[in-house]
Amino acid sequence: MEFFRGLVLGQYVPVDSAIHRLDPRTKILATLLLLTVMFAVREFAGLAILTVLLVAVALAARIAPAYLLRGLRPLFWLLVFAVVLQVFFGEPGGHPMFRWGPVVVTRENLAQAAFYGWRLLLLVLSTTVMTLVTSPMEFTDGLERLLRPFQRVGVPAHDLAMMMTIALRFIPTLLEEAEKIMKAQMARGAEFTRGSLPTRARALTPLLVPLFVGAFRRADALAVAMEARCYRGGEHRTRMHVLRFGPQDLVAVTVVAAAAAFALIPPAAWRGH
């Protein structure tokens, strides 16, 4: 899969570690909690605490740092964009550091930019870590169980989970197919990598049309195959893997909750003691 080698988000790395063995519900809830806290945090100290926690989790899960960084690569331009926007077009006033034509860069804006950049990084990092340590199947299982109580108010927990399972199952297959189509088109002189952006976007049409047609055909065949195996929705369905919330999950939730609480305490409160 040459064209898509950079794609890490959502690519589970099967390793046996204490983190990997946690109940997926624990991992999902912990990630949700961390994401929420990241939005609520107002101070650098809070981000630092969350960073330490994430690095510790990544180390405990034995994720290669290179792998993690590769996952952050697609984020690079977004990060640059956000930081530049914040630096040059942030709030007026504050302590000017240097001036560049009509643009004044202030210390406050620079700090803000660093803060937002760091936060963005953490947001992506936390979801990347989660997907690296949770197999797609576990993730879907966990989500289904977590959503089950909401089934009474009309949340189609099982259907959502099944849709996700199938999406996850077919992502690699469709990527392979996309690459095959691209190569076939390139062999006949198509250009995907040169030209202006609109040209390149137009060049994607002969890729996307067969890809979608193929996906619909697959969906049709898969539906028949699922019916042939007695699939009839979530009712009466049991699972081979039964999720168990064990003591290690309690520990993990406690640690994450504690770190989240610390991250939310403003540094002023620390200095007060």
């Binding site: 697959r218 898969l222 195996r229 699939y231 081979m240």
Partner: peptide, 23 residues
């Protein structure tokens, strides 16, 4: 186009799960 799950053994289990058998 007939493999539902993203892991081999989960897919093998799919039919049995639909039959509602115990874990």
């Amino acid at each position: 186009n007939q493999i539902v799950a993203a892991i081999v053994e989960e897919d093998v289990a799919f039919g049995c799960e639909n039959l509602g058998l115990p874990s």
